[in-house]
């Protein structure tokens, strides 16, 4: 099983994000995610929200596929935005913020290893009493751009909410 380079903890305080929330199965989401990320980028570019050194892109897993029906299953593509940015929500784009404490698993992995990485964070780490879970949504943050194929690796952080 894939293991993280390391696991750290991070406290986020009102980290502003813009997002597009998708409703449907993960298969459908994967098929449409590129289009959704492009829509998000277009909005961010048009509104001067991108700071090349700071902006991070995320996938937020709002629901769990074993609990929520596919038609209601929510997955959000999101992007961090500066504290002082002015945003007028439009189209499918909404604004929100992320706060609280997270365990962050820092992974170098290929597109085919994401499932294993999530499994590691819950089964091999959280459930082994390394921390107490907090009721909030987990997400992936892309540190380097994920490659277009499933083989090449990139850096991705997995954020698990903890107390």
């Amino acid at each position: 099983m894939i293991e993280p380079i390391n696991i750290t903890t991070e406290e986020l305080k009102d980290q502003r994000i813009i997002y597009i929330r998708f409703r449907g199965s993960y298969v459908e989401f994967r098929r449409k995610s590129k289009k959704l990320f492009n829509e998000l980028f277009d909005f961010a570019t048009a509104n001067n929200l991108i700071n090349p050194n700071k902006t991070k892109v995320l996938t937020i897993y709002d629901d769990n596929p074993f609990i929520t029906d596919e038609k209601n299953l929510r997955t959000s593509v999101a992007m961090t935005i500066p504290t002082d940015a002015k945003v007028i929500e439009s189209g499918k784009i909404c604004e929100s913020s992320i706060s609280g404490r997270f365990a962050v698993g820092h992974f170098e992995m290929s597109g085919s290893q994401y499932g294993e990485a999530w499994q590691f964070m819950y089964q091999e780490w959280l459930f082994k009493d390394k921390a107490k879970p907090r009721d909030a949504v987990p997400f992936e943050m892309y540190i380097t751009e994920p490659p277009k194929n499933l083989k090449d690796k990139s850096l991705t952080d997995i954020y698990i909410p903890i107390v």
Binding site: N64, P65, F66, Y114, G115, W118, Q119
Partner: peptide
């Protein structure tokens, strides 16, 4: 039930 049947890929169906 979830504990018993928790699948290895519970988090990423």
């Amino acid at each position: 039930q979830q504990e018993l049947s928790r699948k290895s890929n519970w988090f990423m169906k």
